[in-house]
């Protein structure tokens, strides 16, 4: 029994596989195979499109769906208005796309779609994906900052009230903390997503192995693990929302630096 039992590899869920025989696709020598990761990005985009399109009825008195979409756009609008001010209005499309893509990718990766034979994949659990978003946000901050303030943007590294005798140290620290931003953005999301999925997978392997080991172990280990798994599923749903929010919030804070300096 133990021999035929496949080892549950909690990292296997993150494996990227080319689909539909596209593994030879390439542009300028770079392989761009349509992978399961790309497929889930496509699914996320489609679901997001359907969701927002459903809220586009433009009724004066909104229905439930329209209300849901409007509350999300209103949420992003408020976030930007609170963090950047009136100048934040023009970033609503970007921050909305960012927030909704991360949120939907996180949530769809958590859906129990394996029950229907689909293998959910969470693109945001790969730093090569979150890195793209982080670099996009960081580039926008740099472009906006230098376009609006020119070289004066460097005054960002000298906070107000810096004593003169610390002028050799504070800008260095500020510069490092500024340059770390894209990495912290990308890694925070990737780590949070990966950790949650690994934890769920490990617990599920406990449940399966304990159940296979007989009723005693199933009762002592399997059942508590299963209950814990259910609670952690709820926690992961929360984390999915929080990580999307954190990414959008930090991007808007960085954009605030670029728009208003201090």
């Amino acid at each position: 029994m133990a021999a035929e039992q496949a080892k549950v590899d909690p990292m296997h869920q993150f494996t990227i596989e080319p689909l539909f025989g596209t593994d030879h696709w390439s542009i300028a020598g770079y392989n761009i195979a349509f992978t399961n990761s790309a497929l889930w990005m496509a699914i996320v985009s489609t679901v997001l499109f359907v969701f927002v399109a459903g809220g586009l009825k433009r009724q004066l008195v909104p229905g439930r769906w329209q209300m849901a979409v409007e509350s999300l756009t209103g949420f992003i609008d408020n976030l930007l208005a609170a963090n950047i001010g009136p100048a934040g209005k023009k970033y609503v499309p970007y921050i909305f796309s960012l927030f909704m893509f991360i949120l939907f990718a996180n949530l769809l990766g958590l859906m129990p779609l394996a029950l229907f034979g689909l293998h959910p994949f969470t693109p945001t659990s790969h730093f090569s994906v979150t890195g793209v978003l982080a670099v996009l946000s960081f580039s926008i901050v740099l472009i906006v900052g230098f376009a609006r303030h020119g070289l004066h943007f460097f005054s960002l590294f000298v906070p107000h009230g810096t004593p003169v005798w610390l002028m050799w140290l504070i800008p260095v620290i500020e510069l490092v903390s500024f340059l770390v931003r894209p990495f912290s953005l990308a890694l925070r999301l990737f780590v949070a997503m990966m950790a949650g999925h690994v934890l769920l997978e490990v617990l599920s392997s406990f449940v399966i192995d304990a159940a296979n080991a007989g009723p005693l172990w199933g009762g002592i280990v399997g059942l508590p693990s299963f209950i814990l798994m259910v609670s952690i599923c709820a926690l992961e749903l929360l984390v999915a929302g929080i990580q999307a929010y954190v990414f959008a919030l930090l991007t808007s804070l960085y954009l605030n630096d670029a728009e208003n300096l201090h």
């Binding site: 990227i16 770079y30 392989n31 195979a33 992978t35 990761s37 990005m41 496509a42 693109p123």
Partner: peptide, 10 residues
């Protein structure tokens, strides 16, 4: 192996 594909499709 996958970074180009990931970045491209992202």
């Amino acid at each position: 192996d996958t970074v180009a594909s990931q970045v491209f499709w992202m």
